[in-house]
């Protein structure tokens, strides 16, 4: 940080970019969230539930 004490001198200077944490990248991506939010209940609730219903034996 060469200019740390000299803020006024470099108005256009960009703040050095920190790497964006993985969690924030996830939270900033609505389509990834959409994917998770649809797949998880589809697998655990719908598919699992429907498989259980289909595996109930029918009376002969």
């Amino acid at each position: 940080m060469a200019h740390a004490t000299d803020i006024d001198a470099a108005p256009e200077e960009e703040i050095p970019e920190e790497p964006i944490p993985a969690m924030q990248q996830l939270l900033d991506n609505p389509f990834l969230l959409l994917f998770l939010g649809v797949v998880i209940p589809t697998v655990f609730y719908l598919i699992w539930g429907v498989m259980e219903i289909l595996s109930i034996p029918l009376i002969k």
């Binding site: 969230l33 998770l36 939010g37 998880i40 209940p41 655990f44 609730y45 539930g49």
Partner: peptide, 10 residues
Amino acid sequence: YILFLQLASA
């Protein structure tokens, strides 16, 4: 919420 709330349908 996104991950788990909908499972409570059960």
